[in-house]
Design a protein around this nucleic acid. Structure first.
Lengths: 153, 153
DNA sequence: ACGCTCGGTCTCGTCATGCAACTGAGGGTA
DNA sequence: TACCCTCAGTTGCATGACGAGACCGAGCGT
């Protein structure tokens, strides 16, 4: 039996996970965000097996999240870069990192801090409404459903 | 060979993925956010196999993301609810959904809209600096590294 | 000529997953 | 009493994904 696919679910979370939801994929992307570019560097930093890395990179390239560029055409040596689509995953990475910092990682493990270049402060990203700027949160358990539009199946 | 674990990586993204990074897990949580509470409803909506659902729910309970509560003690019927830790995953779900809406889902699939109750508008969440309120983005490829603090390995 | 580096591919054994049948307690119906 | 139904899992089996490490091949350095 094949592993199930989310591709036919009419839900953008399912569609997203179809691309970045596999084991290792988001860690590979984390390293790309940190500037890692080469096959063997991923293998060494992550401890991922080479065959799985090969398929994950290919999946991400096929999905348009990464771009492969030769830095030594003759020997077939490549760098992997984020595309715009890949760079747009930054909020996902940040949300995951902040959740881990706040709820998972024990004391003694210093979180990675992000400096906001513009204002110079260490920044925590917060989700705000693009309309009024107020901070957004999940609806409380008792609320009626806040979603509307198509059925998120 | 066992599936590799990210638990010993000193990185909160890896720690987070150890909990929510498995196949199916974020889709289960999406449904919990939408108000699904019961075993057979997850099975039917997701098409997940029952044994996998069992282990995923248990993992999430062990991690403190979900809470199980009997609604019919005699017959062993349970509801699954989000804890505060689980509800704190809302930015992750939102970031994934918005990425999917913008970059993955084709035209013709209407995204699920979220109404911001306070201001009454349909809201798109944006990541902003908690200090100055300016919108946050990933550093551009050429920038020096923006992370500082412990090595995010 | 020789070894080295890099970016993979191949093989093989083990683990996770999907499916479907089964279980077991209690309730409803006849 | 007998029978079926619902719900929340558990069990068994077949298959596919994963991990480890060996291997490969092109070109460079010496």
């Amino acid at each position: 039996m094949r592993k199930a696919s989310f591709a036919d679910m009419n839900c953008s979370i399912a569609q997203s996970l179809e691309i970045v939801g596999e084991w290792w994929t988001l860690l590979i992307l984390r390293d790309v965000f940190l500037g890692i570019r080469r096959f063997d560097d991923f293998v060494e930093r992550l401890g991922i097996s080479r065959n799985v890395l090969t398929t994950r990179l290919q999946t991400l390239i096929d999905a348009g999240v990464l771009r492969r560029e030769a830095y030594d055409e003759a020997r077939g040596r490549y760098d992997y870069f984020l595309t715009d689509k890949g760079r747009a995953l930054w909020p996902v990475m940040t949300a995951l990192r902040q959740w881990g910092d706040e709820w998972v990682v024990g004391a003694g493990n210093e979180p990675v801090l992000v400096e906001h270049k513009t204002c110079g402060h260490v920044a925590t990203g917060v989700f705000t409404c693009d309309h009024c700027g107020e901070r957004l949160d999940a609806r409380r358990p008792g609320d009626p459903r806040s979603g509307r539009g198509s059925n998120p199946r």
